[in-house]
Each structure stands twice: as structure tokens, then as C-alpha cells.
Design a protein around this nucleic acid. Structure first.
Lengths: 262, 262
DNA sequence: TATCTCGATTTATTATGATAAATTCTGAGG
DNA sequence: CCTCAGAATTTATCATAATAAATCGAGATA
């Protein structure tokens, strides 16, 4: 990302700023963004309708339309037809943000150890902070999830299902974080792991011991969270992370190289 | 010390929640995404041209065009005019990914303490891992940056500049991370902090002591990194984070509520 | 009165064709 | 061999018109 290497000089004598050559729809989209920011518009606030924008920007219908698609694709606007319709500001959903970020990592070769390295750093701290600070509803949700699979998986399919359930448990914890950034990153990792595609025997040989340990971890964790025992919550989560990492590293697997479209 | 390979896989079974009626351009864009994933196309690989897509999907030119704008807005494709032009796959740049994610946090009220909580967890670990593993060029870059401001800032403007320089230092470290996810998150935080908008007196009263401490930290850190002293690097970074956090918390400030357009 | 249906209205959506702009290719002239 | 003016190719933009979707209101219906 560094090293401005020697760039071929444009032989033409013409205008230099070729890099600034942005298409008209992009320019229009940027102006609309600025417009929104300047007025501090929020979710639901309406933008001028198509005809107004055509007049406002002096461009054709198609250009305005492409501009709106750009904004829409980024999750910034929504548009409806009919009277009172038109475009309005729409805050970017967590799902969409995760999809867009997923597109970036699609081209990176993110390894399982990369993800678990982060999880080991963040999730123990998350639960330590959460201990004693969860409302009754969240606690009850978590407890329910922890008890959801009373028996070890009998089939690979069941095991996979339990694995995903476990990740939902973690995502639920992440959503309870009052630190939106931390919550997002943790949820994002859970989502990536949910999209794992297994190659060989990951779910092929349900492992009774692993199941028992994971389940115990979840139940104990909920208890520690309820009692406000930060140190214990942190320790349980770390232990859980290490176990999960070991399990996954043994297996051959690959992360789905899928665009995470919403 | 390269990691286990994580690789492409087939698309998962497409769910069919017909709850949402997606517009034709979105459908076309999704088909193109699938097409790219199925063939495992990589950066630079070409997509069918406009005319071919019109025929392929049986939609109008405008629809294809809007579809391409959607993909382009997400950073997934690039389009050129002229012979041999057309659209091709283009990997999402880090900058664009940060912008898109920034749009999400635009609507959140991310606080400084949220960010520093994450920084304190991640950056000390980052430098601990990096110690002894940096190449000569990176080390020399870092050393140069650390020595860049030999004198305390005389004006608020200078102080602001030094603050930004410091964040560039951190971003450079993040780029050296071998964990792309961790590197991204750390860079992203540095970028958010760079975009801070100061309201009152953050840079109003250059603080000689703070300057000296920050500079010492950077210089000592580079030395520890070079010597491979992980523990010391971690300790320095943690101390630095705590100092920076204290400094910023004293001041009244707000994060720029700006869309981070590329 | 309440509600349902139907049609008019508003707004975005899709389609078609023409022209402009950017890029590469080609070949004539030096 | 080089250069540079067209020609060819492909997207970019514009203009116009027809279509579809959502909403609203008037009248029919219960």
C-alpha cells in the first residue's frame, strides 16, 4: 500500500487530473451525500424526488437513477414508489455492513487462526464487561440458547446445526455490548464462521466430549454473567475459545469464498 | 509461518424468502456476483460486456447499467470504455471497505472510549506479535516517522498535524500485521480518529509533556520492535494508549458525522 | 357506519434509441 | 522506426415513452 512506484506519465498534454475523473452518477451520489450530511438528515428523512433531482443537477433521468442505485447499494438510502414515495435516508443495517465488509475479506485469505486470535482477545473482555450488566431478557435468552441442545449431535448435520447455534449465542452476546465497535467486530467474526464450508470430517465425527465441554461452557458462562463474576466469565470464555480453536484447527476446512450479499 | 490455506467454495443453497421484491438491477447484480463466485474469477478477470449482458439477462441497457453501478459502488467491479474495455472484477480496496464500514458507524454514536477500549485490547498485542518480525524497510519507515517531529507543536494546527502523524504511525503498524482482520480493524480505528472534528480546545493548548511522552513512546517502541522485545513493546503500547485516551477524554470533542466517501 | 373495491394519481421502474466520450487500433506519412 | 490522425469499439449520457407499483379517495356494499 506504500511505495509510490514510478508511474507512466500520460503522454497527452491534456488535463492532468485523470484520477479525479469520476462519472456523473458518482458525482451526483456524492453531492447527495454531502447534502444529507450538511442537513444532518436522519433515517426516514426524505430526499428530493427523481424529477426534482433531474432539475437540480441538470442531468438525465438515467444518471439520477444510477446515482440512487449507488447510494442504495451502500445502504444509505431506500426508495419507494407511489404517492409520498421517493427516496429517503436509511441507516445502514448491521447485516448490510457485514456483507459489504465481507466482500473485502472475500479477496483476502483470512485464516481460522486469524479469526481465533481476535476472538481470544475480544470475547473474554466482552463477557467480563457484560457480567452483572445484562438485563433479565438477555439473560433468559442466553440461558435458553445454552440449554437448547440437551443431547450430543447424532449426525453431522446436527453437529453443524449445534455449531451454528453456538455462534448465534456469541452474536447475541456481541449485540449486548454497549461498545458498538466491539459488538460489530465480534458479530462479524461469528458470521464468517457461520459461513464456513466444511471439506472433510469436521462434522463427520460428532465428538461427545467436545459437545459436553461447549455446553458446559455456555451454561457456566450464563451463570457467571448473571452473578456478575467478571473474572470467571472471562476465564470461561477464554477456555472456550481455546477449545474451539483447537477443534477447528484439527480439521481441514475452508472459509466460503462467497460474496456475502444481503 | 504461513497459515493453513483457506479457500474458495461453492455457493450455499440459496434460500428463497420471497418477502423482499428485489428490483431487476439488484437481481442482475446478484446473478453477476454468483457468476463471479462460481467461476472463481479474480481481480482483473473480465465480465461480459454490456451488450452481452443485455442479451444474457434479457433486460434493458439501463437495467444492466444500474446493476453495474451497484457492483461498482461496493467495490467489486471496475468498468472502462473503449476497445478491450468493459467491466472486470476488481478486489475491494481497504480504503473503500473502510468507507463503507464508516457509513455504518455514521449512524452509531461511537464514543472515544469505545474506540480506546478496543485499541487497548488490540494494539499492544499487535506490537507484541510484530516484535522481531518486521523487515528492515518497515522498521526504517517507522523510525523515520517517530523522529519526524523533533519539536513540540507551537500552534494548534501543528499539534493537530502531529496527532495525525501519530495515527499514520499506528496505521503503518497495522498494515504490517500478518492478521488481515486485526490489521483492518486497527487501521479503521486510526482512520476514524483522524477524522475527528474538534469542537473546543483539543489542539488549543499544546502540551509539552504530552508531546514528549508520545514521542518517547514511539521511539522506544521502534527500538523494542527491532530488538524483538515483545513484552516491552506491549507495555509501551499499552502505556501509550492509556495516555492518549486520558488526553482525549479531557477534551470535548465529537466524531465527524461525515460519510467517509472514498 | 364501516369496509371493500375500483379507478385515478403519483411515483418509481423498465425499455428503446440516439449521440457523446473515452480508449485502443490501424495505417499512412515522415 | 516513429508519430499521429482517423477509425473502430465500448461505455457514458441523454431524451422520450411506456409500464408497474403504491396510495388515496369515491362510491358501492354490508
Amino acid at each position: 500500500m506504500k511505495k509510490s512506484t514510478v508511474q507512466p506519465i500520460n503522454p497527452k498534454i491534456t488535463d492532468a487530473p485523470r484520477a479525479l475523473k469520476r462519472s456523473r452518477p458518482v458525482q451526483v451520489a456524492d453531492q447527495i451525500k454531502r447534502w444529507v450530511v450538511e442537513r444532518d438528515l436522519r433515517k426516514g428523512d426524505k430526499l428530493p424526488n427523481e424529477a426534482a433531482m433531474i432539475a437540480q443537477f441538470g442531468v438525465s433521468k438515467g444518471t439520477v437513477r444510477e446515482a440512487m442505485r449507488i447510494l442504495e447499494a451502500q445502504g444509505l438510502t431506500v426508495t419507494k414508489t407511489g404517492p409520498g414515495g421517493g427516496s429517503s435516508v436509511g441507516e445502514v443495517s448491521k447485516d448490510r455492513a457485514m456483507s459489504l465488509l465481507g466482500n473485502y475479506f472475500y479477496f483476502k485469505d483470512l485464516s481460522l487462526s486469524d479469526i481465533y486470535e481476535m476472538r481470544k482477545l475480544l470475547e473474554p473482555e466482552l463477557v467480563a464487561k457484560l457480567a452483572g450488566n445484562l438485563d433479565a431478557e438477555t439473560l433468559s435468552d442466553l440461558r435458553e440458547m445454552a440449554h437448547q441442545h440437551p443431547e450430543p449431535a447424532q449426525t453431522p448435520e446436527e453437529e453443524k446445526q449445534q455449531h451454528i447455534s453456538s455462534l448465534v449465542f456469541h452474536a447475541r452476546l456481541a449485540d449486548a455490548a454497549d461498545n458498538d465497535l466491539m459488538g460489530f467486530v465480534i458479530s462479524f467474526m461469528a458470521r464468517i464462521l457461520s459461513d464456513l464450508t466444511v471439506y472433510r470430517r469436521l462434522y463427520a465425527t460428532p465428538n461427545k466430549e467436545l459437545w459436553a465441554r461447549g455446553r458446559t461452557h455456555q451454561i457456566d458462562l450464563v451463570e457467571a454473567l448473571e452473578k456478575g463474576d467478571s473474572a470467571r466469565a472471562r476465564a470461561i470464555m477464554l477456555s472456550h475459545m481455546e477449545g474451539a480453536e483447537r477443534m477447528m484447527n484439527v480439521q481441514e476446512m475452508r472459509i466460503t469464498r462467497e460474496f456475502m450479499a444481503e
